[in-house]
Design a protein around this nucleic acid. Structure first.
Lengths: 336, 336
DNA sequence: TTGAAAGCGCTAACAT
DNA sequence: ATGTTAGCGCTTTCAA
């Protein structure tokens, strides 16, 4: 069942069928209708490989999600999927561990699948022009990137929250409620990724209020493992260190921390308040409900695809888009 | 950068390069080496579309996950991704809402992308031969299917836990601990999907022990929405209906139910025990930790791909594979 | 062991 | 408005 069969069935040439299929204007309504009927009748589905081969590039865009098991991704990926689908394109999604290099994987994928664009989820923010140069199709980073001041944006856009600012907001929220001894749970202060940015926000909020940084309250767990977050928080609770609040850079770390504090003898929020960033669905149903800054996952996905398509179509230069979080008041923070 | 360039670079014909690339035996070691070097030198990556066009089918397999936001999927999908990657194939993943028809979507996808195989996650179990006939490539269902007795397996395999049996185990666990008034939270008793199967297991466990079914204790929420599970459980708690335990057919429903019971005035596990099925990571960090039957997600994904590849290669008839869960003792169940 | 050439299904000039 | 035709990059007969 090829385009030839459809052409024969309709008694026209293949190019006419092709034109009708691709919604070219110069096809008579009568023929167009006949073709459409034939397609239904014959259950004809165009061969994507053939189409892609003759075209300059595929109708496929790639999505690379770095860091497995991140509960923040699924809704973003869903959103990207829907948006890409709505554009009539195809999405290829790949998850890579956080110690793989997303740009290397990306460059290969782009070549092999002849992608027309690429979206990166959870990448680093310290890409150099050189790194980026390997990918010769439009690129959208779903990571706040503060180095575009020095980088020529080229075919690279970004959409994300302002990680530093939002982290700062979260910690300010705690400070406003009277907390001064505030712990932080993060992957690493030197992650070249959101961990580092959110740590900067934490630092800034404390400094604004003249509160010093206490290394004892910085729980660097190396990755986004809930178990590590649990055990370190528990240890901190058991150590009887003086602190009344904790900021987790993600909801899952926040939930693990609450459990750790709890098992370490500290009640949340009575003995220790906890705030996080993400707003994943399940954190509305834990006990206590997590207070968190909700990332606009749906919008991140939609905007990422919109930016990508925009760049693909107009070969325009990249744009940096910053979205805002919204506070979801849970039960894990109290004033003191 | 095409195969022609590589051929020119090596001073051989394209067919020789093609043979070398595809590891045909009849290529002299010397030429083979030269080609390999040229590929590295020139950063040549074969054009998948061209390759797929000339071959009978693509190197792509599809994965359709039905029901969005299911936390059981991500680890399975990751596992499938890795396994497919290890086979040198490509995966296209699509999420569809639970009210879409996975077989229709699947049939289209297979045609359009000329997939060599398809994996279905979270599908129904009441497919007819007719339904299945629309998909003319090997198919693996990650859903327990009890109708293969009457269905000729054809090119269709399945890998999953025995939903009815495992649900029965879960409820038996509660009964063994002295519970007799046991509620259930599920999507629907007539879902033609795991909901129905697990309900059957619930029923069987109760009947085994001579416990009658009380419609009041059956919380049908229509879908897998945590919010619905929350509000219904809360209402049940507030109604002061007599019950001491609750079985949720998924971890996320279980967590939502715990929260609902809690907010409705019942402490878990003191006033009400809760058990579920899934074993998602985050349910180890809620308060109380969820007692649950862990699904072997990693293995489900791996086995699904293995079965699929097996069928693709040998055109063999399908196999039905049943895996076992393992009990993860949490803090949400106590004996009475 | 290698090369020449046909053709996979489609799109897009170009011609009419 | 429609038909004819030349490829897109690759694999695979068929010949040498």
């Amino acid at each position: 069942m090829t385009i030839k069969d459809v052409a024969a069935y309709c008694g026209v040439s293949v190019s006419t069928v092709s034109r009708a299929l691709n919604k070219h204007p110069d096809v008579s309504p009568h023929v167009r209708e006949k073709v459409e009927e034939a397609v239904r009748e014959l259950h004809y589905v165009p061969n994507t490989s053939a189409r892609d081969l003759v075209r300059a590039q595929t109708d496929t865009v790639g999505l690379i999600a770095r860091g497995t098991g991140n509960l923040f991704y699924p809704p973003v990926i869903s959103s990207v999927e829907r948006a890409v689908e709505a554009e009539g394109s195809t999405l290829i999604t790949i998850h890579i561990p956080s110690d793989d290099d997303e740009l290397t994987v990306g460059a290969e994928l782009v070549k092999a699948k002849r992608l027309k664009g690429l979206i990166l989820l959870g990448g680093r923010f310290d890409y150099s022009e050189e790194d980026l140069a390997n990918i010769d199709v439009p690129l959208v980073l779903c990571t706040f990137s503060n180095n575009f001041g020095t980088l020529s944006a080229g075919h690279c856009s970004s959409v994300s929250i302002n990680d530093e600012e939002e982290a700062c907001k979260a910690v300010r929220n705690l400070i406003e409620r009277g907390h001064r001894r505030i712990a932080i749970v993060l992957d690493s202060v030197r992650s070249h990724s959101i961990g580092e940015l959110r740590f900067l926000g934490y630092k800034r909020a404390l400094e604004e209020s003249g509160i010093g940084i206490d290394p004892e309250l910085i729980l660097e767990i190396g990755n986004f493992d809930m178990h590590k977050a649990y055990s370190r928080s528990r240890a901190l609770a058991e150590s009887r260190t003086d602190f009344t609040a904790l900021f987790a850079i993600s909801d899952s770390l926040g939930m693990a921390a609450i459990k750790g504090l709890n098992d370490g003898g500290l009640l949340v929020p009575e003995d220790c308040s906890v705030i996080a960033i993400d707003g994943i669905e399940i954190s509305r149903y834990c006990i206590p409900t997590l207070t968190t800054l909700i990332q606009p996952t749906e919008e991140i996905g939609k905007k990422a695809v919109a930016l990508l398509m925009y760049m693909i179509r107009s070969e325009a230069i990249g744009k940096q888009l910053i979205l805002e979080t919204s506070l979801r008041e849970g039960e894990s923070v109290r004033s003191i």
